[in-house]
Amino acid sequence: MEIKVTRPKQFADMVRDYRLLADSKEIAVIKRGTTQSVTLPEGCKMLKAEIDWCSSPEFPVSEIRAGKIVVKNSFSSNFLKAMFLPLYYISFGKEMYLAIESEE
């Protein structure tokens, strides 16, 4: 299955790359502000994005609509979260630091 992966330009993590994993195997490196095509391995069930020790929750491949997903920092779009919660997201919330969403 071929999908389009988009990573928006966000201030947080602007110099670091995200890694996209399919069933715990790295399949792509996603750079800031890019859209790229990624081929998922046959039989793949879950996607996950990682950066350093932080990650996203697992995202079921069956929920991908229109063959497009967005991988982004989960708190940088909200100014108050970006100011007050980074320590939470890199410690207790490390598995919610990134978000994968299906794009319509």
Rank of each mutant, 00 (worst) to 15 (best):
V71D: 11
S91P: 13
T34D: 04
F75P: 14
R7V: 07
A12G: 11
C44S: 11
A82V: 08
F11T: 15
V38Q: 05
M1K: 15
S91A: 06
K4E: 14
C54F: 15
I90Y: 13
A49G: 09
S56E: 06
K68Q: 04
C44I: 06
W53M: 11
F11P: 06
F59M: 01
A99R: 08
I69K: 03
I3G: 02
E101H: 07
E50P: 03
Y89F: 15
F11R: 14
E26H: 11
S76T: 07
A28G: 04
I69G: 03
D23G: 02
K9P: 01
E63Q: 07
V70D: 01
T39Q: 11
L47G: 01
K94P: 04
S37Y: 03
D52P: 02
S37N: 14
I64D: 04
T6G: 01
G33P: 07
A82P: 07
A28P: 08
E95C: 08
A12S: 13
G33S: 09
M96L: 09
Y88G: 02
I90Q: 09
V5S: 01
G93M: 05
V29M: 01
M96R: 15
K4S: 15
S76F: 06
A49N: 10
A66T: 09
S62A: 12
G33W: 00
S62N: 08
R19N: 10
K31P: 00
K94W: 10
E103K: 15
K9H: 12
T35S: 12
V71W: 03
E58P: 06
S56T: 03
E2W: 05
F59Q: 01
V15F: 08
S24G: 05
W53P: 05
F79D: 14
D23P: 05
F75N: 07
V15D: 14
K72E: 12
E104M: 14
S77Y: 08
E50R: 15
S76D: 15
F59W: 04
V5G: 00
K9M: 07
K4W: 04
T6Q: 04
D17Y: 06
Y88Q: 14
M1D: 13
T6F: 08
G43K: 05
C44T: 15
Q36H: 08
K94G: 01
P57G: 13
M83Y: 10
A28C: 06
F84V: 04
A22D: 08
Y89E: 09
T6L: 00
E42F: 00
K94C: 14
I64S: 06
A49V: 09
A12M: 10
P60V: 07
M83W: 09
V29E: 11
L47A: 06
E101T: 10
L85F: 13
P60Q: 03
I51H: 12
A12W: 00
I3Y: 12
R16S: 09
E2C: 12
S77L: 11
C44H: 06
S91T: 10
C44F: 03
V71T: 03
V38S: 02
T6S: 13
R65D: 01
P8N: 09
A49D: 03
A99Q: 09
W53D: 13
S74R: 02
S24I: 05
S77Q: 12
D52A: 07
E58Q: 00
S24R: 11
I3P: 06
A22H: 01
P60H: 07
F92K: 12
G67C: 09
V38R: 05
F59T: 13
I100E: 02
I69P: 02
A12P: 00
T39Y: 01
V70S: 12
